[in-house]
């Protein structure tokens, strides 16, 4: 089955908070297609519409105009994608009253994965992420890195076709984040998923992605393909070269955003 995503003319406005206050256009006719099994990183300054993009794609917000299709199919009436979706938030967002394993069960219960396969799936991902010994621990007993790993297990357990990741490693220390990035690529190469990964970190984006998309003011500023063969090495100089280009674009986008904020709005 095709699990690509195609986005056409996506527009999202936030209304002004007070009466008479002008609303803000966060996504401004965005066009983007993501191929089946492609790993795309979205990079951009705060307020460029990154999180809004994930909210609209995941169906959390379906008050937008434009067209979103998954594998050629339109989204359902409730705005939910017609394919299976996993999600990693910036924070682990675990249910604190459930053990690690029960947190995974919670999403399995709401999925179409048959119960006969739960044990096998859980064994697989718990051991893959090194959390085997922590299945009966409560979230507060896990370190930040372990909690985020658990939320990765949770997202993968439902065997999603597409995986949305909203700055999932930004709250972790560099060493843990680095290990998680390597693990993520490893899992992705084995299971095959379409991944949309949002980040503030240009090297992270370059290391992970097939293609880095830099957003600026609700639209695409630049698309930078990363044609470095996999498996990649974290300290590959070729990645550094591309990451410089990504970085330059990111900084330019941030400057544009700054200028737009200082400019008095016309009309």
């Amino acid at each position: 089955m095709d699990k690509g995503i195609s986005i056409k003319g996506l527009v999202k406005d936030y209304p002004g908070h007070r009466k008479g206050e002008r609303g803000q256009r966060v996504l401004n006719g965005l066009d983007l297609s993501i191929a089946d099994n492609e790993f795309v990183c979205i990079l951009g300054p705060s307020g460029c519409g990154k999180s809004t993009l994930l909210n609209t794609l995941s169906g959390l917000d379906n008050d937008y105009s434009g067209e979103v299709r998954f594998g050629g199919q339109p989204v359902g009436r409730n705005g939910k994608p017609p394919v299976k979706m996993g999600y990693l938030f910036q924070d682990p967002r675990l249910l604190p009253w459930l053990t690690a394993e029960r947190n995974v069960d919670f999403v399995l219960e709401n999925s179409d994965v048959p119960k006969s396969r739960w044990a096998e799936i859980k064994n697989h991902y718990f051991s893959l992420t090194g959390l085997e010994a922590f299945r009966d621990h409560y979230p507060h007993e896990l370190s930040g890195g372990m909690a985020q790993r658990l939320s990765l297990v949770r997202a993968l357990s439902i065997e999603p076709d597409v995986l949305f990741m909203d700055e999932p490693f930004s709250g972790l220390d560099e060493l843990t984040a680095r290990r998680m990035r390597v693990d993520l690529l490893d899992i992705w190469s084995r299971t095959g998923k379409t991944i949309l990964f949002i980040t503030h970190n240009s090297y992270e984006a370059t290391f992970l992605a097939d293609r880095v998309v830099v957003l600026s003011q609700g639209n695409i500023r630049e698309e930078i393909p990363v044609e470095v063969p996999r498996p990649r090495h974290y300290d590959d100089p070729a990645l550094f070269e591309i990451s410089k280009q990504v970085s330059a674009n990111f900084i330019a986008a941030a400057e544009e955003a700054e200028r737009a904020r200082l400019q008095p709005q016309a009309g």
Binding site: S58, L60, F89, R93, L95, W97, F106, R154
Partner: peptide
Amino acid sequence: RLFKMAKVFNASRWVIIRRVLFP
């Protein structure tokens, strides 16, 4: 934020009330 998580993972309104709000 936990409601958002449950929603993304396909929990129905009733499941959210019973398993995310109530606890």
